[in-house]
């Protein structure tokens, strides 16, 4: 994938993901706390519209970084853990791409995002496979049985099928660990990203993690470009 095209697609998906999350923040009751939130999320939507339009992108990115710091301060940390962290990472790399002076440095910044995307899968697989509870399926059983994530009591029933959970655990760990090998061939990478997106989609349906789905998609162009650049 061409560098400029990959950057542009990243900007568009990131802007849409930030707008979706901001709109959710603004949907609360109109009381004091929400007024405070409006000062953060209305400007964020406005900046995202400028990012979508491709207008003054370096300044827009810098503005979004500043707002992200204020949002971190407002919630004393990330609002939605990993998805907020990935959002900040994508935004930071994008900002660096627009402010760094040379093509080489810009490519390094965008390549760092691609590298972190690969690590996001590989490290998640590694920390699971060294844990016996993940290898025997019990950890995934616990996620369904008593974690805060299942979206309904009906979904909790999956905890009753230990064999299925063991197969699912190994499928998730196996995919996460072999994901870096997808870099070796373009078709393998496209297939790997489709599987990964399906995995995020399943997490969004079963555990309500919708923001993860959109924000991880925003990082996909970086790995498609990096694969073209390296191989």
């Amino acid at each position: 994938m061409d560098f400029d095209l990959a950057i542009r697609i990243t900007e568009i998906i990131l802007a849409l993901a930030f707008m979706q999350a901001s709109a959710e923040h603004l949907s609360g009751p109109k009381d004091r706390a929400c007024v405070k939130d409006r000062w953060l999320f209305v400007p964020r939507i406005f900046l995202c519209l400028l990012l979508l339009a491709g207008y003054q992108t370096p300044w827009v990115c810098a503005g979004l970084v500043a707002l992200s710091v204020l949002i971190l301060q407002r919630y004393q940390g990330p609002y939605n853990g990993g998805s907020d962290r990935m959002g900040l990472l994508v935004l930071s790399c994008l900002t660096l791409v627009h402010v760094l002076p040379s093509q080489l440095l810009q490519e390094l910044a965008f390549g760092y995002l691609g590298l972190q995307l690969v690590l996001s899968y590989f490290m998640s697989g590694w920390v699971k496979i060294v844990n016996a509870d993940w290898r025997n399926g019990r950890a995934l059983g616990d996620v369904f049985a008593f974690s805060a994530y299942p979206v309904s009591e009906h979904v909790r029933n999956w905890a009753r099928y230990p064999l299925l959970l063991r197969v699912m655990s190994w499928a998730v760990m196996g995919f996460e660990l072999i994901f870096p090998l997808c870099l070796l061939h373009h078709a393998a990478l496209v297939a790997g990203l489709l599987v990964a997106a399906s995995f995020h989609l399943a997490n969004a349906f079963l555990f309500g993690l919708n923001r993860f789905f959109w924000i991880w998609l925003a990082a996909y162009p970086s790995i498609l470009w990096l694969q073209d650049r390296l191989f």
Partner: peptide, 29 residues
């Protein structure tokens, strides 16, 4: 408390609109 059952349609809708659940995840944090 979680609902007993959530339809596929409701889950799909939450892909683009899920403020209450995301607030609940924040309260877990």
């Amino acid at each position: 408390p979680r609902p007993r059952y959530l339809s596929i349609f409701a889950m799909a809708k939450r892909m683009v609109w899920n403020p209450n659940w995301n607030e609940m995840l924040y309260l877990v944090s």
